[in-house]
Simulated assay, not measured.
Amino acid sequence: MVDKKGFKAGYVAVLGRPNVGKSTLINQVLQQKLSIVSHKPQTTRHQILAIYHNPKGQIVFLDTPGIHNQKKTALNKQLNQTARSSAQEVDVILHLVEAGQWHDEDRRATEIVMSGGGQKILVINKVDLVDEKSELLPFVDNILINFSYDEVFYISALKNKQVDHLVSRLLNMLPESPPLYDPSFISDRSTRFFVSELIREQLTLRFHQELPYSLTVTIDAYEPEESITHIHATIWVEREQQKRIIIGRGGAAIKQVGVKARAEIEDFIQSRVNLKLWVKIKSAWTDDQQALDGLGYKEP
Rank of each mutant, 00 (worst) to 15 (best):
K56C: 02
A233W: 03
P212Y: 14
S283Q: 15
A233P: 05
V140N: 06
Q256S: 15
D164I: 05
S168V: 02
H46W: 08
I235G: 09
V60P: 05
V37H: 04
H165S: 11
I219Y: 07
S23D: 08
D63L: 08
G100R: 05
Q31W: 00
L30E: 11
Q101M: 15
E197P: 12
V279L: 10
L30V: 12
H95Y: 15
L158C: 00
L62W: 04
F185A: 03
A233H: 03
V217H: 09
D164R: 13
S134K: 13
R272F: 01
E210Q: 14
I246F: 05
D150K: 07
L158T: 01
E98M: 02
A83N: 09
D220W: 10
M1W: 06
L166G: 03
L96H: 04
F153P: 05
K22I: 05
I143A: 04
R244H: 08
H39M: 00
S177H: 13
S283G: 04
I48N: 03
K4A: 11
Q270A: 09
G10V: 06
E197I: 11
F147Y: 14
R84K: 15
V217E: 07
R200M: 09
A284R: 11
K255I: 04
S227C: 14
V12W: 07
G21L: 05
M114S: 03
N160S: 10
V12L: 10
E266C: 03
L136A: 07
T286Y: 00
L215R: 08
S115H: 07
N160Q: 08
D104E: 13
Y222M: 11
S23C: 08
V123Y: 08
Q28F: 00
Q88V: 13
L94K: 00
S86W: 07
L79F: 13
E135P: 00
A252H: 11
S214W: 10
I245R: 02
T204C: 12
I199R: 05
G10F: 05
R189P: 00
E176I: 04
K33G: 12
L198Y: 07
V195S: 04
T73Y: 06
F61G: 10
L129W: 01
I155K: 03
I48M: 06
E226Q: 15
V237A: 06
R249C: 01
L62S: 10
N125W: 07
G116C: 06
D106P: 08
H95G: 01
Y11D: 01
L34F: 14
R249F: 07
I245A: 01
D128H: 11
V279G: 07
F194Y: 13
K159A: 13
H103P: 00
A252C: 01
E98F: 00
V123T: 11
A87C: 06
